[in-house]
């Protein structure tokens, strides 16, 4: 007889991919905002190019979520209260105790800010003219609010995993922090690819430092995460190690740790251990993006392995 029986939600690849895409979109928006805030005039071209990215990605996310749910008609129940749920008041659906509700609303509202950034990018590219939009899209308050929604989109899925009763997921408080790191690294990696492709040397230099710092912070959070699991009384570290041994191991060690963290730490350091030839920063960015997809996958499937082990 097992000690305690738990059932796993059985979230599959559409959810993992959807949340990865949402994380990349919010990370790209965060990087764009950072360049707007902290960069100078030479950096703005990269910020405007980055602004094209979040909106199309955020349009893909609901499609993947609908694939997972199976029926498109069900999706609105996350946002608009179904009349059958008579116990709840109001027209809109919001349960403050549910990270999934926070995330759903954050994605919708972040989509609005991503659309504003996209329109502004169109304006700056000269394809369409929305000169009236510039005071809004470049307004600091608008950018800050957009960044806050991007932050919720980045981290809510990690907090959501924490707010369960599943092994590994609920054993620490660091899942949300890890997912913020994953999104931030993804955003910086994407920005590095864009700036490298645009030969924006000035911006690339700043971004490689930003990516290096973010990889350092993420490594610290990952070490704290593993240490936190190790201190648990219920043998979670053993379960994690067992699960990493099964089918998450390559995704975790090669993808997340290797490509996602070690590559930027070794190659983008001010005194790099691995020399990166000029013009190959985009390659580093691609490797980090692949690493971040693997990182999210490893985190999602760690609890499945825990249940099966």
């Amino acid at each position: 007889m097992p000690d305690t029986y738990l059932l796993h939600p059985g979230w599959e690849w559409p959810i993992t991919i959807a949340l990865t895409i949402a994380g990349v979109a919010s990370g790209a928006y965060a990087a764009m905002g950072l360049i707007h805030f902290a960069g100078d005039k030479r950096d703005q071209a990269v910020a405007h190019r980055l602004a094209f990215i979040p909106l199309p990605l955020m349009l893909v996310v609901p499609l993947l979520l609908i694939i997972d749910l199976g029926q498109p008609g069900r999706f609105p129940n996350l946002l608009i209260r179904n009349p059958a749920a008579a116990e709840r008041d109001g027209f809109l659906m919001f349960n403050a105790n549910s990270p999934m509700n926070w995330g759903s609303w954050a994605m919708v509202l972040f989509g609005v800010f991503a659309a504003v950034a996209f329109a502004d990018a169109l304006h700056h590219s000269g394809r369409l003219h929305f000169s009236w939009l510039e005071p809004v899209s470049h307004n600091v308050v608008v950018l800050v609010i957009g960044e806050l929604f991007a932050l919720v989109v980045s981290g809510y899925s990690g907090v959501l995993l924490n707010v369960t009763n599943q092994g590994v997921w609920s054993d620490t408080w660091l899942m949300g922090a890890l997912f913020i790191c994953i999104s931030e690294l993804s955003g910086f990696a994407l920005a590095l690819i864009v700036s490298d492709r645009m030969s924006a040397t000035h911006t690339s230099t700043a971004l490689r430092t930003a990516l290096f710092y973010a990889a350092g912070v993420s490594t610290v959070i990952l070490v704290l995460f593993l240490a936190d699991l190790a201190t648990q009384q219920d043998g979670s570290l053993g379960a994690l190690v067992a699960s990493l041994h099964q089918f998450v191991a390559p995704a975790f060690w090669i993808g997340a740790v290797g490509l996602g963290l070690l590559v930027p730490l070794l190659a983008l350091s001010p005194r790099p251990i691995v020399r990166v030839p000029n013009g190959s920063l985009a390659l580093i960015g691609v490797l980090v993006l692949v690493g971040m997809l693997a990182f999210r996958y490893a985190m999602f499937f760690s609890a499945i392995s825990f249940v099966q082990s």
Binding site: A31, L34, I35, F37, A38, G39, D43, N97, P99, L151, S154, G155, G158, V159, N162, V163, T164, N165, S170, W173, L174, M175, G176, A177, F179, I180, C181, E184, F188, A206, L207, T209, A210, F212, Y213, A214, G216, V217, I221
Partner: peptide, 29 residues
Amino acid sequence: PQRNFVPSAGVALITAAVLGVTGLAAFRR
């Protein structure tokens, strides 16, 4: 499961702040 909600969100916010500061520091540097 809600026992983890506020601590997890709090740690995530602190991490976001640290990442924001390091990003600004990178551009300043």
